[in-house]
Design a protein around this nucleic acid. Structure first.
Lengths: 251, 251
DNA sequence: CGGATAGTTGAGTTATCTCAAATGCAGTGG
DNA sequence: CCACTGCATTTGAGATAACTCAACTATCCG
């Protein structure tokens, strides 16, 4: 009795919004949590067991505590999450807002990493995969490897852009760019309609992502709202005037 | 008549300071610019020609102009360079100071990239390798792939740390951390002695790397000098008081 | 209804920037 | 060797974007 509109890979129903964009979905791993033989390019031709597990986190819940080091790599299936590092005094910097299909924690693939905080911004479903098994996938399946490379390069470029903004742009520009970037990534996923997309970030998250104070963030957002550039309603954001938003974002 | 202290791979003399730390040196590619068969793990066993070329840039010269898009990946053999993005008004943000052995432009491996500026900070020798050939190396040689992954994850983590500093730390902390990070990377390469290492950056480079103004950078550096924490002489930097430098760098 | 969390607003402070002028320093041509 | 030019650095004065603090309001949830 399920309403399934799009054709799915054999044994791999597209259960979550992120599936179609997920770099791991097409391997077939998600079908059951265990697969005997994945993909079509297994050079050895032998059976292989890949284990993964699905988890849920409610909005606001912590997915990874800064004091624990993870042995897993994660994929966002649905919802939204954020990756950040905190300072001793409680301030922190958000590096990326994670959308369905995104991979998290790949930088811990070789060196163990600690001090990173993962928090669900919205009710979120994610899949965990052991680092060792992920590495195995990477070295054995060229397609998967290429997709992974594209993704990690994208994330590094995003991070460079973030550094550029934090170093050289003012508050309004940073906030406008954050919104534009999210809108673009939502659009790529087909999760935006009528300029409106799901926006579970609270103002302190916007502040943490842009290196600002919540107070100052509030003041900048007021201008954006008063000028009818964006509109917030029911945890979603609507871009009313794209041209002016781009103008605020600056060169 | 050459003084060669460490044993080099067959046909691959360690010509430059970066060789021992370079993720590509051990493949043997650098020996002649062309090799018929690289490494020891070639699964096909067949002959393969990898082409690469060596280039020089004098201090201050541009290696890659922001308007040209490169089809190459580069390795620093000796000297120092910087990778940055510039804004229309001339301000820019430096993302990384590149030391001997470092790989540059790997984020352009799949998507063409433009707008990035590469500049030699010191007289620099670097090696260029076509993207396509680099990708081939990556997919065929597991060791090389692992080293590459470690390096790209390291760079992403560095970039996260940069964003954290730009977003959440003050001028003195950012500058102190830049110095500490460089000292650490020089130490790893054995290129530091008596707390002193080569430091060709001008104050505007420090400013561009820390998101500050050259004027303000000058004022912060004065304090560091007056407090006998660091000393600049002949384009090199000496850390006089590591404990206090760490203290300035903050938590 | 009450208590907690999130957002708003104003007043005063501060880190950093901008502008401008002065100094130092390296390379060039005479 | 010297004067000259161009860049890097220094220093001071004043401007400003963003911060801190504090009080108030709105919203959510049991």
């Amino acid at each position: 009795m399920q309403d399934r509109s799009s054709a799915a890979a054999p044994g791999s129903p597209e259960k979550y919004p992120g599936c179609a964009f997920c770099i791991i979905f097409h391997t077939g791993i998600c079908a059951s949590g265990k697969v005997d033989k994945i993909g079509s390019a297994n050079p050895a031709g032998g059976a292989r067991v890949i284990q993964s597990s699905v988890h849920k986190a409610l909005a606001g819940q912590m997915i990874l505590h800064p004091r624990e080091s993870s042995d897993d790599v994660m994929f966002i299936c649905s919802g939204q999450a954020m990756s950040s590092i905190g300072l001793a005094d409680g301030r922190r910097q958000i590096f990326e807002v994670l959308l369905p299909g995104d991979l998290v924690l790949w930088t811990a693939l070789f060196e163990p990493m600690t001090g990173r905080l993962l928090e669900a911004l919205d009710d979120t479903v994610y899949r965990k995969l052991k680092r060792s098994e992920f590495k195995m996938l990477l070295s054995e399946y060229p397609d998967f490897f290429a997709t992974f490379m594209r993704f990690s390069a994208f994330q590094k470029n995003q991070c460079d852009q973030l550094a550029l903004s934090l170093g050289r742009r003012n508050a309004a520009q940073r906030i406008a760019r954050l919104i534009l970037e999210l809108a673009k990534r939502f659009a790529e996923r087909g999760l935006i309609s009528d300029g409106t997309f799901r926006f579970p970030l609270r103002q302190r998250h916007i502040a943490d992502a842009t290196g600002l104070t919540p107070v100052h963030t509030s003041k900048v957002l007021r201008h954006l709202r008063q000028d009818h550039i964006v509109e917030f309603k029911d945890r979603s954001l609507r871009i009313l005037d794209m041209a002016r938003l781009r103008q605020v974002a600056g060169p």
